[in-house]
Design a protein around this nucleic acid. Structure first.
Length: 651
DNA sequence: GAAGCGTTATACTAT
DNA sequence: ATAACGCTTC
């Protein structure tokens, strides 16, 4: 094996550490990924069987990338190392040990399904005119409590303003939600971690067996792990050694229960652990780091972090002001085209947005100017309405108790609404297999061959995922055509889906993969293309970098986002979000904004959070002029051609 | 009583 | 773009 790529002294010390547990504190751009890969390579050269190394990353994308780089580095074709997210690892292990966990034929549900299911539960609790949190908020609250491993009621009492009566109601709804999931044989994201962690902690023998699988556990993005994930790591360590890498200044998932005590309290929890640091930034120019350092310095918290560039180039970030978000989008797309014509690859450019919604005008310009891009964090392919219709049919055939899938499929047909569907679903839940279900539906829906034929179509092609999708899609076409006005565009997504399914042996495995690792519509369209611009949310940009980064809509109300205002911890997280965004850039960081409205417009929060309040909290309110090159970009003359009449002059 | 239709509110981050 | 809601029709 070739010796690992070049490492500096600190990186090498971490990668070749021979002692016990390690926490590596690694600032942005200090070669965190490189060090983890070098660590894995080092372990392999030292004779560790790669199958005994567990690599836990934050996204599946990160895992794929690391394994790919490790493959290149070691020159081996296939490395049998387990690499993936906590969720993947836990589910994989539970499926591999069916007798110990009993979740083998469960359906993994996404956020949308969680909310749908909660709606059904909530409906049973709401008396007319009564105020209850919306289903989506209930799901967030329950999910947060579970990820931080505390009872819902306790969490609500300590951290929210709900009155006792409402808290009790939410507690009961949370309980019913859990029951309903079990009855439907559903696993939501939280169940995957929770069930795994619970079994490890209640069954010593099982814990020992699973512990025996690994000697080394490498954890990326430790600052964004939550208490449930810590319980898992804690159960698996000793004799396995932990190698956790993180940066508290880049913690941006507190809303999901991430707890940076997993970093701060590491040495208390693991007394024999060593803390190592990576401090030299290889990614960015000093100008980009100066602005990033300044941002952390304005915090009341002490991050104790000052990034210093190894690179010599300085290049200050640019801060460009526009008349409005259309001018901003027009300029960025124009700049991209100019750079591309000048020989730069599309893929050298990344556009970073705080919210998916905030990038809408930009996206329309990208489409209009035909710039190839993929949107990380855009609407997931599996969540598009017509795709959910199709998957409803497929899922229903696989899991008779999947009530959301049945409801979706059955109500697709004329004269079948919520009430009829609910009656049928109740009966379906008492049956054992799809043949019984067909018999029952035949009896109940006399003369409705349309509804039944869809099911037989799926059952007949069950072992050929792309064929099932194409046949089912073809079958539903006449019905869906009447429901969606832009059917032609939507129809294409079925082909995309079939193409994606080709790589999978079973339909449910295929769906599960994309439920745990959602692909946006634009991503799936660009499967074979490498040279595309990346458009991403800040959260999606975590762990990545690009030569040129455009950070759009850096406006009051956006940084910090107005929804965070008034809650100190949330506002502080917004600072880290901006920090993460800025530190993605290698050579050029271009910040753009429009100050015309003095804050976000036409949003329900704009009414409760005044523009003044948004400006007051704005991170760039008192920006040091020396840190950026600022410009106001005037609209081009040609752009004023919208008038189709002449305003007469007065003289 | 259930289905279907038109109008209106809503939009932060995501495994 | 989609879900929720209220109202009309079957």
């Amino acid at each position: 094996m070739k010796e690992a790529f070049e490492l500096n002294a600190q990186q090498r010390a971490a990668a070749t550490w021979e002692g016990g547990h390690v926490l590596v504190l690694a600032g942005a751009g200090t070669g965190k990924t490189r060090t983890i890969i070098a660590r894995a390579a080092h372990l392999m050269t030292s004779g560790v069987d790669p199958a005994r190394i567990l690599l836990l990353t934050f996204t599946r994308r990160a895992a794929r990338e690391m394994v790919q780089r490790l493959t290149q580095l070691t020159g081996q074709e296939k490395i049998p190392l387990m690499a993936g997210t906590f969720h993947h690892f836990c589910l994989y292990t539970m499926r591999r040990m069916p007798r110990d966990f009993g979740v083998q034929d469960a359906t993994v549900i996404d956020r949308d399904d969680q909310v749908q299911l909660m709606k059904l539960v909530r409906g049973g609790y709401r008396k007319k005119g009564e105020q209850l949190p919306r289903a989506s908020e209930l799901v967030s609250l329950c999910s947060y409590a579970r990820n931080t491993n505390q009872p819902v009621s306790e969490y609500l009492q300590q951290h929210t303003d709900f009155d006792e009566e409402t808290i009790e109601k939410i507690r009961l709804m949370a309980r019913d939600y859990e029951r309903r999931k079990r009855l439907n044989r559903y696993l939501d994201y939280d169940d995957i971690l929770f069930l795994f962690a619970r079994r490890l902690h209640e069954d010593e023998a099982l814990k020992s067996r699973i512990k025996g699988f690994y000697d080394h556990i490498l954890v990326d993005e430790m600052q964004d792990t939550n208490p449930l994930q810590w319980l898992i790591l804690d159960a698996l360590r000793d004799p396995a050694r932990l190698f956790c890498v993180g940066d508290d200044a880049q913690s941006i998932y507190a809303f999901r229960g991430a707890d940076f005590r997993n970093v701060h309290a590491f040495t208390e929890r693991v007394p024999d652990a060593t803390v190592l640091r990576l401090e030299e930034n290889y990614r960015s120019t000093q100008g980009i780091l100066d602005l990033s350092n300044w941002l952390l310095d304005t915090s009341p918290l002490q991050y104790g972090k000052r990034l210093t560039a190894v690179r010599r180039t300085v290049s200050k970030p640019r801060l460009l002001d526009f008349e409005n978000d259309f001018e901003e989008a027009r300029w960025i797309t124009g700049d991209l085209i100019e750079r591309h014509e000048g020989g730069a690859a599309w893929s050298d450019h990344m556009i970073i947005t705080r919210t998916g919604y905030g990038a809408r005008s930009l996206e329309s310009f990208m489409v209009e100017k035909k710039i190839p891009y993929r949107f990380i964090g855009g609407v997931s392919l599996l969540q598009a309405a017509h795709v959910k219709d199709l998957l409803g049919l497929i899922r229903a055939c696989f899991n008779l108790r999947d009530e959301l899938a049945w409801a979706r499929y059955l109500t697709l047909w004329p004269r079948i609404g919520d009430a009829t569907a609910a009656r049928l679903i109740k009966e379906l839940k008492t049956l054992y297999d799809i043949q019984d279900a067909l018999k029952m539906l035949e009896k109940r829906l006399k003369g409705r061959r349309d509804v039944l034929e869809g099911i037989t179509t799926v059952v007949e092609t069950w072992n050929d995922p792309p064929a099932t999708i194409m046949k089912a899609g073809h079958y539903l076409e006449p019905t869906l055509k009447t429901r969606y006005s832009n059917w032609k565009n939507r129809r294409r997504d079925f082909d995309l889906l079939a193409r994606l399914a080709k790589r999978h042996r079973s339909l449910m495995a295929f769906l599960e993969t994309y439920t745990l690792d959602p692909v946006s519509v634009t991503e799936s369209q660009r499967l074979e293309e490498d040279d595309v611009v990346t458009l991403t949310t800040v959260h999606g940009a975590k762990g990545t970098e690009a030569t040129v980064c455009y950070l759009i809509r850096v406006e009051p109300g956006m940084y910090p986002h107005m929804r965070s205002l008034g809650r100190e911890d949330d506002e502080e997280e917004e600072r880290r979000i901006l920090y993460v965004a800025m530190t993605r850039a290698r050579d050029e960081l271009i910040l753009t904004r429009s100050l015309r409205w003095g804050g976000a417009r036409r949003s329900p929060y704009a009414a409760s959070v005044t523009p003044d309040r948004q400006r007051e909290a704005y991170f760039f309110r008192e920006l040091d002029d020396d840190l950026v090159d600022s410009n106001y970009v005037y609209p081009e003359f040609d752009d004023f051609t919208d008038f189709d009449f002449i305003v007469p002059s007065r003289n």
